[in-house]
């Protein structure tokens, strides 16, 4: 695995193709959980964790179950089921082992199942790192890395947004723009700033 490819994936996933600001994946939690920094950060951790592990599991499912049995068309169904079951499992596991962590992440975990960023990254991995039904070189490592850094990019955008929205509470804005509309307009400006990173492309 060449180091150039890895660096490209890192920069691309965190900045250029930021999941929220340029691919529009995971907007619901972006608007829902960005009201304060603390919960935004916790949501971010939960997303990074679930995204990375779901990418690992779905890669294995696709490579060792769907491809050998020629069931590639069941990709969507099997992936969403795997993710849903996995999130449920983590929830039960954390509840038993670490009640403090459960209180912190608890309410966000079920939300992650319907987060399109998680399903998005797994589908993207399959599109990017499989040629037909043959995995490319170092496919597994690249898929895991891509998912991990997509999660980092997600958390970054969420954290920036929550910082801005905390300040926004004190500002006098028109009644009809309060809440979601102003959040969209801010996201638009942030996305404009992130577009500056496009120049990084090799």
């Amino acid at each position: 695995m060449d180091i150039q490819r890895v660096i490209f994936i890192v920069i691309s996933m965190v900045f250029i193709n930021n999941f929220i600001l340029s691919k529009f994946l995971g907007l619901c939690p972006f608007l829902g959980v960005s009201k304060e920094t603390k919960s935004a950060l916790q949501m971010g951790y939960a997303v990074i964790f679930v995204m990375t592990l779901s990418a690992v599991i779905t890669w294995l499912v696709y490579r060792f179950i769907l491809i050998p049995f020629h069931l590639e068309y069941l990709r969507t169904i099997s992936f969403i089921l795997v993710i849903a079951a996995f999130v449920q499992f983590i929830e039960m596991f954390i509840q038993k082992t670490s009640p403090a962590l459960y209180r912190a992440l608890g309410i966000y975990l079920p939300l992650i199942t319907t987060n399109c960023a998680v399903l998005g990254v797994t589908v993207l991995n399959i599109n990017d790192f499989f040629k037909g039904s043959v995995p490319i070189k170092a496919s597994f490592m690249l898929a895991t890395l891509q998912a991990f850094f997509a999660g980092i990019g997600f958390t970054l955008a969420l954290l920036l947004m929550s910082g801005i929205r905390e300040r926004l509470d004190l500002v006098d804005i028109p009644e009809s723009l309060k809440g979601i509309p102003i959040a969209f307009i801010i996201a638009s400006l942030m996305s404009l700033a992130f577009m500056g990173f496009i120049g990084f492309k090799p």
Partner: peptide, 9 residues
């Protein structure tokens, strides 16, 4: 991307 967010907002 920015145009989409702005339009919807």
């Amino acid at each position: 991307a920015p145009g989409a967010l702005l339009t919807l907002g």
